[in-house]
């Protein structure tokens, strides 16, 4: 885990949620607890940086704590991102459904989880995924990609607005 503040256990204990994700770390040197902000949990570790990119957090000035390859009962390994003093619109967060469909969003205020949210797959996706068709205009000219999401037997695929070909979402992971 990347740690840039080193909050003490006493503070962390105030937040049940943060305590929960702390189970396998050192009791003294700890992950920063959030006083206010957003925690994105259950992100596939390999997509952590895609999530930062999609949320435009690469140039963010606020404190961001990232965890990769944490143990998770449900997912085996997972990633987590904590952003201090930032709250997001649903439309922003739902863009993550593509790279982290099982992610949960925790809104933290005053060290407590005040709200938990699940992501909803948006109907249209702009500027995120790449079209798998090598002859698609979006792969040759500075054109922002645009897709309609299609759900078939629980599998998500993307219909390219331009070349009308289908991109398999598995190619995105």
């Amino acid at each position: 885990m990347i740690d840039n503040l080193g909050y003490r256990q006493s503070i962390i204990n105030e937040s049940l949620y943060n305590n929960h994700i702390m189970t396998h770390t050192d009791k003294e040197l700890v992950v920063s607890a959030l006083e206010n902000g957003t925690v994105l949990d259950h992100i596939p570790s390999e997509n952590i940086f895609k999530v930062l990119e999609i949320l435009n957090l690469m140039d963010e000035k606020n404190r961001i704590t990232i965890g990769i390859n944490l143990n998770s009962k449900l997912f085996g390994k997972k990633g987590i991102i904590k952003i201090a003093d930032r709250f997001f619109q649903d439309e922003e967060l739902n863009k993550l459904a593509l790279v982290a469909p099982k992610a949960t969003v925790n809104i933290i205020r005053d060290f407590r989880v005040v709200e938990k949210r699940k992501l909803v797959m948006p109907h249209e996706i702009e500027g995120i995924a790449k079209c798998m068709n090598p002859k698609c205009i979006t792969n040759h000219q500075p054109v922002k990609t645009r897709f309609t999401t299609m759900e078939n037997d629980n599998e998500i695929s993307l219909l390219c607005h331009y070349c009308e070909k289908i991109t398999d979402i598995k190619g995105l992971y």
Binding site: K135, I137, T138, Y162, C163
Partner: peptide, 28 residues
């Protein structure tokens, strides 16, 4: 007409006049 697929759709979004696709690669 253009060899890249989706080029005509993109052109129709950029153009201020109607666009007729006379073939965009193997697409339409």
């Amino acid at each position: 007409r253009h060899p890249l697929e989706g080029s005509s759709r993109y052109a129709s979004e950029v153009a201020s006049v109607p666009v007729v696709n006379a073939g965009d690669g193997a697409n339409q």
